[in-house]
């Protein structure tokens, strides 16, 4: 776990953000997590920064712009569409699943009920992306 990932977490639920923070610190990971409460905020961040995140963790059910709408915009933007995007959601709606894969995602993770299960899942996901070769800027 030497690699430090630059992660963009797009999540409107404050407790979910806390869960991620707590999980990363629990697992003693050194990843840099940038948080965006809305999709609009996320675009702002992506446009401001000169270095793009390594991966994006995206919630689907959000007020204003939904996760799928954000994904569509992202994947139609030539500068941004390379960023692997992993869906992190409570929705096991098949339609959502299909749509996301169609647009282009790098993973679809269901948030489990129990926090311990959540930690296990996030640990696997992050460790997976740690061993991936990612685009350098």
């Amino acid at each position: 776990m030497k690699k430090k990932l630059n992660i963009l977490l797009i999540e409107d639920n404050i407790i979910e953000v806390m869960k991620m923070d707590r999980t990363v610190s629990l697992l003693k990971l050194k990843h840099k997590i940038t948080k965006a409460v809305t999709a609009d905020k996320a675009f702002e961040l992506l446009n401001e920064t000169e270095s793009y995140p390594d991966i994006i963790l995206l919630d689907l059910n959000m007020p204003k712009m939904s996760g799928i709408e954000f994904l569509s915009s992202l994947k139609s933007n030539d500068n941004l569409k390379h960023i692997p995007t992993i869906i992190l959601t409570t929705s096991d709606n098949e339609n959502d699943l299909k749509k996301c894969y169609k647009i282009g995602i790098s993973g679809y993770i269901l948030k489990p009920l129990k926090y311990e299960d959540y930690v296990k899942k996030i640990e696997v996901v992050l460790s997976y992306w740690c061993i991936n070769e990612l685009k350098k800027y």
Binding site: E16, K19, S91, P112, Y115
Partner: peptide, 25 residues
């Protein structure tokens, strides 16, 4: 309706996850 059911279920399930996380913490 189907979509709505999913949204509702998400909206109902999210707090359950939060509560579970909080209790766990």
């Amino acid at each position: 309706l189907n979509e709505y059911a999913h949204v509702v279920s998400h909206d109902l399930k999210s707090p359950l996850r939060s509560i579970d996380a909080l209790v766990s913490w």
